[in-house]
Amino acid sequence: MSDLFDLGVSVADKTVRTIAVYVTIAVLLRIAGKRGIAQLNNFDFVVMLLMSNVVQNAIIGPDNSLVGGLVGVVILVAVNSVVVRLAATVPSVGRVFEGTPVVLARDGHFIPSALRRMGVRQADLNVMLQLRGAESVADTDLVRLEPGGSLLVRLRPEEEDAERGDLEDLCRRLDRIERKLDGLSSGPS
Results as ranks from 00 to 15, higher is better:
Val21Asp: 06
Gly149Tyr: 05
Glu98Tyr: 09
Ile19Pro: 00
Asp141Phe: 05
Asp169Ser: 13
Val79Asn: 02
Ala88Ser: 13
Lys180His: 11
Thr24Val: 08
Val11Met: 13
Gly165Trp: 06
Ile19Ala: 10
Pro91Asp: 05
Asp107Gly: 07
Glu135Ile: 06
Ile111Ser: 04
Gly99Ser: 09
Ser81His: 10
Val84Leu: 14
Val11Tyr: 10
Ile111Thr: 03
Ser92Arg: 08
Gly61Pro: 05
Gly99His: 03
Leu76Asn: 11
Val103Cys: 09
Cys171Asn: 08
Leu70Gly: 08
Asp161Arg: 14
Leu142Gln: 04
Gly33Trp: 03
Arg176Cys: 06
Arg179Ile: 00
Glu158Phe: 03
Met51Glu: 07
Leu7Val: 08
Val120Thr: 09
Glu163His: 08
Val27Asn: 07
Ala78Gln: 13
Ser136His: 10
Asn53Thr: 11
Val143Glu: 01
Ala88Leu: 14
Glu160Ala: 13
Gly119Phe: 05
Glu178Thr: 12
Ile75Ser: 05
Val127Ala: 14
Leu155Ile: 11
Asn42Trp: 06
Arg121Trp: 02
Leu142Ser: 02
Arg154Asp: 11
Ser150Pro: 01
Ile111Asn: 03
Leu145Ile: 03
Cys171Pro: 01
Leu151Phe: 11
Ser2Tyr: 02
Arg179Lys: 05
Val67Asp: 07
Asp63Pro: 07
Val90Cys: 04
Ile75Pro: 05
Asn41Leu: 11
Leu170Pro: 00
Ala134Thr: 05
Thr15Cys: 11
Ser92Lys: 09
Val67Leu: 15
Ala87Trp: 06
Glu159Thr: 06
Val67Gln: 11
Leu174Met: 14
Gly133Tyr: 10
Arg95Asp: 02
Phe43Gly: 13
Gly99Cys: 07
Asp182Thr: 11
Asp107Phe: 10
Asp13Tyr: 07
Thr140Gly: 00
Lys180Met: 14
Leu142Ala: 03
Leu50Thr: 15
Ile60Val: 14
Glu135Phe: 05
Asp169Arg: 15
Ser10Phe: 01
Gly94Val: 06
Lys34Val: 00
Leu131Arg: 14
Gly108Arg: 01
Asp175Leu: 12
Ala123Cys: 02
Arg117Ala: 14
Val103His: 01
Arg30Leu: 10
Asn53Val: 15
Arg35Met: 04
Met118His: 03
Tyr22Thr: 06
Gly72His: 01
Arg176Ile: 02
Ile25Phe: 09
Gly119His: 07
Gly133Ser: 12
Gly99Pro: 10
Ser136Asp: 13
Ala134Asp: 02
Val23Cys: 05
Glu168Leu: 13
Pro157Phe: 00
Arg85Glu: 07
Val27Arg: 05
Val16Pro: 04
Asn57Ala: 14
Met48Tyr: 08
Ala78Ile: 12
Leu104Val: 01
Gly69Arg: 11
Ala134His: 01
Leu145Lys: 02
Val79Ser: 08
